[in-house]
Design a binder for these strands. Structure first.
Length: 383
DNA sequence: TATGCCGGGCG
DNA sequence: CGCCCGGCATA
């Protein structure tokens, strides 16, 4: 998870009467303004498979309080834009554990009755918010909008501004914003800048490759479900200043993902290789994408900086890659799924040979190699 | 469920 | 950096 966003979930925290629709369908909640919030949600959702192994050691919190069943965790950093570096009040990380209480474990007070496969656990109604971040957090980010038009790179602070810029300068449309068809969305991107290194960021991130025929448009995120999520973290600027897509939400305009340039994740499996898309690639859904030729070039390529939402690591991936043999098939069915780092790529496959744990057993743990003792990759029985 | 180990925290 | 552990993926 990227802790790039210290202020996620602000308005939801510490309230037990969260509007349910906000939780069940992420979209209406514009406060889910960050990727990490989404990703963290999904992480929680999917970590339920697992291991609330010993409720005996649950620590100081009282499991009967039932407030532990909420799947949410939150940075409660109210108005922390002002002092981004001030750490939260030092509550111990133990207080954090209750969030992880799985409802499937059968032990906890998990309120999830008949399980809801739609992965909204809003039934864990009582939410234990107000929890500060136990540890690290980053400083605040500032959202800017950068024109992606070739050789332009203009950066404005509002979505409306950048749209108007693109519309008038690049698209050559003089009309007002209401005649916009949302095409401008694809020529700018939202960038998040560290407020203390704005100039640095601006200078360093000019991804406009000068040799391309067309400006590198932000990727249209193919999956509808992802689109919904992507909608949920559209920046609030774009919504309060003006309706970015005047009127119609074309599948293209919805997908203008933005905010992908500065998102650097720690996890390698979240980064994905660029994917080039042939121009006639719209196989099923988006008829609009065929008309998406900003210049008169006949073909263009779209490169992903990262998947549209950063929660690829643990999301619903109904189609895992079958195995190694098939990962050579690089031809991704375009627009059928986002480039998603499969686990085979990210995680080292489990070694064949015996490991210290197996050889010596748990009781002889002191005979293990240090890596095994530390739950790292075994160094003694490498394969 | 057991195991391997990545990611990350702590001192 | 050593040590440890949570959590996840996989067998």
């Amino acid at each position: 998870m990227t802790e790039e966003h210290p202020h996620v979930f602000l308005s939801v925290v510490s309230s037990t009467d969260i509007p349910k629709n906000c939780l069940s369908a992420l979209s209406p909640c514009s406060n889910f303004s960050s990727h990490s919030s989404v990703s963290s949600l999904s992480l929680l959702f999917f970590s339920e498979s697992g291991s609330w192994k010993d409720n005996g050691s649950a620590g100081p919190f009282t499991p009967s309080s039932n407030s532990s069943s909420g799947g949410y965790w939150s940075w409660s950093a109210p108005s922390d834009q002002s002092n981004p570096s001030t750490p939260s009040p030092p509550l111990s990380a133990d207080s954090f554990k209750p969030f992880r209480v799985p409802s499937l474990g059968g032990v906890g007070p998990g309120p999830a009755g008949p399980e809801d496969p739609s992965l909204d656990d809003q039934d864990g109604s009582s939410l234990l918010f107000d929890e500060p971040i136990p540890r690290k957090r980053k400083n605040s980010m500032k959202v800017m909008f950068k024109c992606l038009w070739k050789n332009c790179g203009k950066v404005l602070s509002t979505a409306a501004g950048i749209q108007r810029h693109i519309r008038t300068i690049h698209l050559g449309r003089n009309c007002d914003s209401d005649c916009s068809d949302g095409e401008e969305d694809f020529y700018y991107t939202e960038i998040k800048l560290n407020t203390d290194s704005v100039a640095d960021g601006l200078s360093s991130l000019s991804p406009v490759s000068p040799s391309l025929l067309s400006p590198p448009p932000p990727p249209p995120s193919p999956l509808p479900s992802l689109n919904q999520l992507a909608d949920s973290h559209r920046p609030p600027q774009s919504s309060d200043t003006k309706e970015p897509q005047a009127g119609g939400t074309t599948p293209l305009s919805r997908s203008a993902p933005s905010a992908l340039y500065l998102i650097h994740t720690d996890h390698a499996y979240q980064a994905t290789a660029p994917v080039s898309i042939p121009s006639n690639s719209s196989n099923s859904t988006s008829s609009a994408s065929t008309s998406f030729t900003p210049t008169n070039s006949s073909s263009f390529s779209i490169s992903w900086q990262s998947p549209p939402v950063t929660f690829t690591g643990s999301t619903v991936s109904p189609s895992k890659s079958q195995g190694f043999g098939e990962q050579r098939s690089q031809t991704i069915a375009v627009l059928s799924s986002p480039p998603r780092a499969t686990t085979a790529l990210s995680r080292k496959v489990r070694g064949e040979g015996k490991k210290c744990r197996k050889v010596y057993g748990m009781e002889n743990r002191d005979m293990w190699c240090t890596a095994c003792r530390w739950k790292k990759a075994c160094q003694r029985f490498t394969d």
